[in-house]
Each structure stands twice: as structure tokens, then as C-alpha cells.
Design a protein around this nucleic acid. Structure first.
Lengths: 177, 177
DNA sequence: TCCACCATGTAATGCGTTACATGATTGA
DNA sequence: TCAATCATGTAACGCATTACATGGTGGA
């Protein structure tokens, strides 16, 4: 259960409102942990009830906007969680199920779906590589930057592997598809 | 929502009881889609209510064991689903959140956790490679076998990438950890 | 003034997880 | 005969998802 800690992490990087956090989950943090604004508002309320964050109304802002700040207890909780024992990641890959189904029931339109996915992943890869070129040109960096770069490279590698997999799968499916 | 279709796929490969399906989800299918026996029994009841499978009591078996068979309508549903438009996979990687947290809050015991995970993934990789050597020695095969091999290779590649990632992460964390 | 949008929130539903329950069978 | 185990199932809870609601702000 990482959503509360993903929020604490994001607030440790920089305070912000619910909608700002939601937009971070559409970009940086969201590359490896997604959340909708409903989840985020619900969770922020809990974090505040736990005394891990506090919020103040932002005067002069649109609507009822509030800024959330990490409290010392929240930082403690984040440190505790980071070092906690960890389960291996749960893999749930619908594509593999579909390929296995196809291998039993015979050719289908799955190849077209793969072609669509392939172009999506190529776009994602290009986006990650653009970030890498823009933000991580210098090779020598401090610990923090090296860790950030590492996480980005994991995204790049994942997309690369995914693309290679789609290409292999298509070459099999299209042999007789 | 792939659990019902993972079950249909497994039953298309071979009929079986709830407990047999549960044990398949601890092995082959479970490598990319996990399910507990509670989920499986609940879902089997729904599949039967939908007319996609039927079940008969197995005489002479332990307890109330029932065999589930795929019905023609279930096969149709499986084919329909296989070719359906597909969303990109949802990535939820707790490790990346933790690394990002560490990059903000500074050194922790996360390196020890990574060492533990590393050995787990090395075991998984070895298990996959053993299956590959045992079941996929011949390079020339039919479509069905090639697809099965492809899915297994995806598992191998995933574990390999994961291992490389842990090693990189450890080398950064241990510089000063 | 009024419409579109922003920021926050409520409600309903469903899958996934955990704990517990029941009946039957095997083996010591 | 009795304990362990197998096979199936029930119940409760939580996160994730989707649809919808509210109120305020800015621009046409």
C-alpha cells in the first residue's frame, strides 16, 4: 500500500495542493505509481488525520485551494516505510494472458491490438529519452541526482523491453495471422 | 479485468477443478496473473452463471470436488476478449517510490531490502531458465509453442532487467549508505 | 451575465486480500 | 478413532475506478 507514501514523498520534494499533486501523478511520480484525483483527496484527508501533513487555505487562489505541507511526523513515517521489508512486485500482465489465450484458440485480431500498443510504447520511450537528454546530461552528479536518473533509466529500459517484446510477438502472429 | 478470461484460458487448455486451477495460478498462469483460491471460486461461480462453463461433481474424489469444462459460449467470449481494444499496462512499482523517497530523505536501510529482493529475483530467473532448457530446446516449433516460448522469454527478460536494476541501485546506495 | 473550467468532494461498485468456516477423506 | 489435510466456501474490509455533484473564478 504505497499511495500514502507516494504522496508523502511528493510533498517532501515540494509542498502543493491536491490538484498539483494530481498533476504530478500524471507526470513524474505517475510513471510508476498512478492515482486519480479522488484517491488523492481521500488519502490527503487521511494523512492530515494522522498528523503527517497539515494544510492551509491558499488565499487569492481559485476555489477552495489548499496547500499541503509535510510535518516532521510524516517525514519519520516516510523514513520508517522506506526501510520496511518488501514483497516482490505483483505482476499482472493482461497481454500475456491474451497471448496464451491466442495460442490455444488460434489466430485473432490481437495482432492489430499489438500494433496499436507498439506505437504507444514508442511514444513513451521517446518522451523518457527526451527527459533524459534534457535533465541528465552531466555524468558526474550527487547521490540524489544519480538515484533520480536510475529511476528514469528503469522506465527507459522497461519501454525498450516492451517494444522488443511486441516486435517478437508480431513476427510470430503475422506468420499466419 | 482479466481474471475471468485467465480462467477461461486455463480451462480451454485443460478442464479442471477449482483447486487444480488454484495450483495452476501458483505456477504457469500465475507468473503473469495471480489469484487466490477465494477469487477463483467466486469467479468460477460467475462464469457458470454466465453460461461460459459448466461443472459436474467428480465421483470418487476427495470432498466436494467438481470438474469445470469450457462451453462453446465461453470459447466465444474468450475469442471476443482476446481481440478487444487494450489499455497499456498499469505500472505500480513500489520500489521506485521508495528509491525516490530515499533520494529526498537520505540514506536508510533500503539497501538491505534490495539485497534480499536481488536473491529472490535470481532464484526466479534460474527457475524460468530451467523451464526453458527443459521444455523449449528445439528451435523449430509450431505457432502455439512459439507463443508459449515467447511468453516465457518475457518472464526471463523481466527478471534479468530487474536484477540489473537492483545491482545498479545497490552500487549507488552503497557508495555512502 | 453566463458559460466553461478549476478545485474539491461524494457515492456506488468491483476486484483483491485476509481471516475464518465447513464437510469429507486419508493416514497414523 | 482422531488429527491433519484437502476442497470448497463465506464474510469483512480496503483500495481502485467511475460517475456524478458543488461552488467558485475568469473570460467572452
Amino acid at each position: 500500500m504505497s499511495l500514502p507514501h507516494a504522496l508523502l514523498t511528493s510533498l517532501a520534494e515540494r509542498p502543493g495542493s491536491g490538484s498539483e499533486l494530481a498533476s504530478r501523478f500524471d507526470r513524474s511520480i505517475g510513471y510508476f505509481w498512478q492515482a486519480t484525483h479522488q484517491q488523492i483527496y481521500r488519502e490527503l484527508a487521511r494523512l492530515e488525520a494522522n498528523g503527517w501533513v497539515r494544510s492551509v487555505a491558499i488565499e487569492g487562489a481559485r476555489g477552495r485551494k489548499r496547500r499541503y505541507d509535510l510535518l516532521p511526523q510524516g517525514l519519520e513515517e516516510l523514513a520508517r516505510w522506506t526501510a520496511e521489508p518488501m514483497d516482490p512486485p505483483a505482476i499482472r500482465d493482461e497481454l500475456m494472458v491474451r497471448l496464451r489465450a491466442e495460442s490455444v484458440i488460434g489466430p485473432s485480431a490481437l495482432a492489430q491490438r499489438l500494433t496499436e500498443m507498439l506505437s504507444l510504447h514508442r511514444q513513451k520511450l521517446a518522451a523518457y529519452q527526451a527527459i533524459e537528454r534534457r535533465d541528465f546530461v552531466s555524468s558526474s552528479s550527487d547521490r540524489r541526482r544519480r538515484l533520480q536518473h536510475l529511476v528514469l533509466k528503469a522506465g527507459v529500459d522497461f519501454e525498450r523491453q516492451r517494444i522488443a517484446f511486441y516486435e517478437d510477438a508480431l513476427s510470430i502472429l503475422e506468420d499466419d495471422g
